[in-house]
Amino acid sequence: MVSLYEFAGGEEALHALEEIFYEKALADPILRELFPVRQPTHVDHLTWFTAESFGGPGRFTRELGFEYIINVHRGLHITDEQRQRFVEVYLDALDVAELPQDEKFREAVRQHVEFGSHVAQQNSQAETDEQLHPLREVPHWTW
């Protein structure tokens, strides 16, 4: 079976998606607190994470490691409203990026983003290591 990475169009398509998402997040009044300024490496890191999750190269794990993403989210105190808006903005970016309209593909991406946003929210609110989500590696998402 073709991976989500291949079906999406590979690295180039995912990079375009993450760039569109990031621009939307920077401009969104609900997400602005989480994305106050453009970070020069953020789109690349999002791309690496999504690519690896979707069955592409393992660059995120090799170059950053999962601890990196835990640390990035710690202390952000992501609210339910921000988490839900993140998902909405991300799913909107799929259309703008012209990723495949295939229903099964879109559902897999939606589930991935929902799951990831819950993990990020939990980690953002954790005051101790025990309160962190137990996930310690990039999840490998399939159809």
Rank of each mutant, 00 (worst) to 15 (best):
M1Y: 04
M1C: 07
V2Y: 03
S3H: 06
S3L: 03
Y5D: 10
G9N: 08
E11Q: 13
E12L: 11
E12V: 12
H15Q: 12
A16H: 14
A16C: 04
A16R: 15
A16T: 13
L17Y: 15
E18G: 03
E23I: 10
E23K: 14
E23V: 13
A27S: 15
D28M: 00
L31G: 08
L34W: 03
L34E: 12
F35G: 04
R38F: 04
H42N: 05
V43D: 11
V43E: 10
H45Y: 08
L46H: 05
L46V: 09
W48I: 01
F49L: 13
F49A: 11
T50I: 14
A51I: 00
F54V: 04
F54G: 07
G55N: 07
G55C: 01
P57V: 02
P57M: 01
G58K: 14
R59A: 09
R62I: 10
R62N: 09
R62H: 12
L64M: 10
G65I: 11
G65R: 00
F66C: 09
E67T: 13
Y68E: 06
Y68P: 01
Y68N: 11
Y68M: 07
I69E: 01
I70G: 00
N71S: 06
N71P: 00
V72F: 13
R74L: 05
R74T: 00
H77G: 00
H77A: 12
E81G: 00
E81M: 02
E81N: 02
E81I: 00
R85N: 10
E88N: 05
V89M: 04
V89C: 07
A93E: 08
A93G: 09
A93H: 04
L94S: 08
V96E: 15
V96C: 02
A97F: 11
A97S: 12
A97E: 12
E98F: 03
E98Y: 10
P100H: 09
Q101G: 12
D102E: 15
E103H: 08
K104R: 13
F105T: 10
V113I: 15
E114N: 06
F115P: 05
S117W: 07
V119S: 10
V119Y: 13
Q122G: 03
N123E: 03
N123M: 07
A126H: 05
A126I: 06
A126S: 09
T128E: 08
Q131G: 10
L132S: 04
L135Q: 12
R136W: 02
R136H: 09
E137T: 15
V138M: 02
W141R: 15
T142S: 10
